[in-house]
Amino acid sequence: MLTERDVVTDGQGAPGLAFRHPLIRLTCYERLSAARRRLLHSAYAETVLRRRPEAVDPLAVHLTLADDPRATGFLRRAAERAAALCANDAADHYYVQLTERLDSAAAEAAWIRIDRAAVLRRMARYDDAALILREALEDMRRRGDGDGRVLAAARLAEVLAKSRSTAEGFAFLDASPPAAGTAADASVAHHLSRSVLCFVTGCYPDAVEAARSAHEAAQRVTGPERRGLLARALTAQATAPALAGRFSDARPVADEALPHAEAYGDPQVLASVLSVLREHARRSGRLREATPTGHRARSRRALGRSDRGGLRAREPRRTASPARRTGDGGRAGRGRRGGRPSAGSRHLVDGVRSGRPRPRPDAVGHRHRAVHGGTAHPGRGRGERAG
């Protein structure tokens, strides 16, 4: 059953024993009593705590199997570490276990659900994320947690924008607006979510106004997430006018957003900022500046897609920017490459933030009318805004 095999201890090889086959180990484990299993997992966890207290993953696993009260803290740390590394499947697994252990404490479980939904959104599991956020929102309402309710509603509306339920998203935002005493990060989430919904329905002036409100709220944030919130708010302000062809308005905001986006490190946010700068340089005739900026934007975008835990992201629609249609006599999508939009235009369409909301087909008409002097009606069509 066992065989001699070297094991590594403190970086040094040492004689040890191992099972000859994984099935033998599994069979022996299954024949142990529940009490014996908990004892073995507890002893292993205590050894890891003494020798490698920073190894949160094995500690989370073995303390959970040992039914140790300390498992909750290590599950949270393991989930946050996996999420930070974009190991989305592992993070989701830890959050599931953590939620099950905390269901008796609704307050903590609701916040865990919000964190897990962010992981599911990165994995493009929007329906699952929406379900989790609805549960979190209901928990926050029952408990009377105002900040939590605003944050949960904002995250839910943002996810609904990905599943084309913009009217329902607006309804959630209108039902849970930030108040004077709402925490700054929750207020930022609310305004950014409204900006995303306005963006995907083609209401670019409203999207910019909401992004400005998010920027004002982000100025009050003092934690390490401040740079990220500022980057997202400024990126939203720059992308909306850029898609409307007003690159002269977008360039100063993009310049202000760039250092925050670089410090934040989110490849999607950085790619959106670089795309605005690239298009402005190209349209201004500064091709030597535009080319490397475009290459950098594409590499950041590719990195962001590879961070999805191995899942293939849905490709953006190949839609030319309104400014390109205007400059080409109203013929959609006529670029230098025979009818295909430029790389910068595709990156702009690809999103305002890491969620990368895309203009829906009914939003194209809004952009066209905005450029050619017509009147857009953001309340019509499938993106109709709730009452």
Rank of each mutant, 00 (worst) to 15 (best):
E256I: 05
R113S: 02
R226E: 06
R337H: 14
V7L: 15
S354M: 05
G265K: 07
R331D: 01
V269K: 07
R312E: 15
R308A: 12
D362A: 04
R324L: 11
V221Y: 02
P15R: 10
V8H: 09
G381F: 05
S187Q: 10
A106E: 10
T27P: 00
E289G: 05
L160D: 08
A109P: 02
T375I: 15
A261Y: 08
Q219E: 13
H366W: 02
A129T: 10
E168K: 14
L243H: 03
R382S: 14
L348H: 04
A376F: 02
G146F: 06
T235Q: 13
W111L: 11
R380P: 00
D266K: 04
A83E: 05
A332K: 02
R288S: 14
G387W: 14
Q268R: 14
R282H: 12
S33I: 03
F74A: 05
C198I: 01
S163K: 10
A254Q: 11
C28P: 00
R155V: 12
L32P: 04
A210S: 15
A34W: 02
A45D: 06
L243W: 11
G181H: 06
E168R: 15
A320N: 01
L32R: 08
R358S: 05
G351Q: 06
E100T: 03
R232Q: 15
S345L: 03
Q12E: 15
G329F: 00
A343R: 12
R282L: 13
H41P: 04
E100Q: 07
H368P: 00
R212W: 09
R76N: 04
R149P: 02
S165V: 06
L311E: 09
D128I: 03
V8A: 10
G148A: 07
H295K: 13
G374R: 07
A189T: 02
T291K: 12
T235I: 05
G374T: 09
L192Q: 13
